[in-house]
Amino acid sequence: MCRWLAYSGSPVLLEDLLYKPSNSLVMQSKHSRMGAETTNGDGFGVGWYGAGPIPGVFHSTEPAWHDRNLRELSGHAMASRIFAHIRATTGTAVQQTNCHPFRHGRWLWMHNGVLTDFPKVKRDLALAVAPDLFPEIEGSTDSELFFHLALTFGLERDPQSAVAQAVGLIEDTGRRHGIDYPIQMTVATTDGDTTWAFRYSSEGNSRSLFHSTDIATLRHQYPDHPLLHGLSDDTRLVVSEPLGDLRGAWREVPDATCVVVHGGEQEMYPFTPELPVAAAV
């Protein structure tokens, strides 16, 4: 399906995340260890927060390992909050408007997974998107529609509740169409200040997701590791799969869980879908 990472902490070059680690995202684009597919070559995207209020995004339909512009950009662009995503399409076209992360104002969103039998449920779900948000949908993916459902249900006010309602609607719609397991997801979203990451699937067997452990502790364990000494104590990563093999650096996110990262604080909450009130009437 896809692989992604969400970084926050001291400013780093994009190449420090995308190229330098032994299991970097670019490495995963050809040799994913834990993905549904080994190769994720159907485009990529990077989102980052710079000087302005709106995050920058760079999308390409090239495989990440093959894109010279990504290699050039990564050696110069630096940010303290970065989203990056490599895509393996589940059926929709390979085009820039289908590349993650998706953007709405200050918000970024990326998804690994699938809305099962998407053509069967697409019309019903599209009609649930708020009329003022619907014109913003540029591509044809289930992931972008999922994003706009979350926005419809109040992502900008309460991300955990909005995603729970979007997933509740997706599951209810899917089951009305005879789909046993309507959604498979790991999702990350951010407003540039806080990151929310979700791991969930209708079948209870979700795609892989990990979070980094405390940098200060790792620095104490590995005093000679150069990368750790360049990172602030509040640095945090949430990733589809670990970027390296440093013992103790990564912990698996439990299934049906929401991870909230704000500064150096990282908290986990149970995640349970809920049917939106309007849909339940």
Rank of each mutant, 00 (worst) to 15 (best):
Asp132Phe: 00
Ala130Pro: 03
Arg103Pro: 05
Asp124Gln: 14
Met110Lys: 02
Ile137Gly: 03
Leu151Val: 04
Ala130Asp: 15
Val187Ser: 01
His177Lys: 14
Ala150Val: 03
Ala188Arg: 00
Arg103Ser: 13
Asp158Leu: 02
Pro101Ile: 13
Pro101His: 07
Pro159Phe: 01
Glu156Phe: 00
Ala128Glu: 13
Gly168Ile: 13
Arg157Tyr: 04
Ala162Tyr: 08
Leu155Cys: 07
Gly105His: 11
Leu125Glu: 11
Leu127Asp: 14
Leu133Trp: 08
Asn98Glu: 09
Asp158His: 10
Glu144Val: 06
Leu169Trp: 02
Gln184Ile: 09
Ser140Tyr: 03
Phe146Gln: 03
His104Gly: 01
Gln165Ile: 08
Val121Arg: 02
His100Leu: 09
Phe102Gln: 15
Ala164Arg: 08
Pro182Cys: 06
Ser140Asp: 15
Leu155Ile: 13
Gln184Gly: 06
Gly139Arg: 12
Pro131Leu: 03
Ile137Glu: 06
Ser143Cys: 08
Gln184Arg: 04
Ala188Glu: 10
Asn98Met: 10
Gly113Thr: 12
Thr141Arg: 02
Gly105Ala: 09
Glu144Gln: 14
Gly174Pro: 11
Met185Gly: 01
Ile137Val: 04
Leu149Thr: 09
Ser143Tyr: 05
Ala188Cys: 07
Val129Thr: 09
Thr186Met: 02
Leu108Met: 15
Lys122Met: 04
Trp109Asn: 09
Arg157Gln: 15
Leu151Ile: 14
Ala128Leu: 04
Val114Trp: 00
Phe153Gln: 11
Arg157Lys: 12
Leu149Tyr: 01
Ala150Leu: 05
Leu127Met: 13
Asn112Met: 02
Val167Gly: 00
Ile179Met: 06
His104Glu: 14
Ile183Thr: 08
Pro135Phe: 04
Gln160Met: 08
Gln184Pro: 00
Ile179Pro: 07
Val121Tyr: 00
Trp109Ala: 07
Ile179Gln: 08
Phe118Asp: 01
Val163Asn: 01
Thr173Glu: 11
Arg123Cys: 00
Ile137Arg: 10
Thr97Cys: 08
Ala130Glu: 14
Trp107Ile: 15
Glu136Gly: 03
Ser161Asn: 10
Phe118Ser: 07
Ala166Gly: 09
Glu171Ile: 14
Glu144Ser: 04
Asp180Tyr: 00
Leu149Gln: 12
Arg123Lys: 12
Val167Tyr: 02
Leu108Gly: 11
Trp107Ser: 10
Arg103Leu: 09
Ile170Pro: 02
Phe146Gly: 05
Leu145Thr: 13
His177Ser: 10
Thr152Lys: 01
Leu155Gly: 04
Gly168Thr: 11
Arg176Cys: 02
Pro135Leu: 10
Asn98Ser: 13
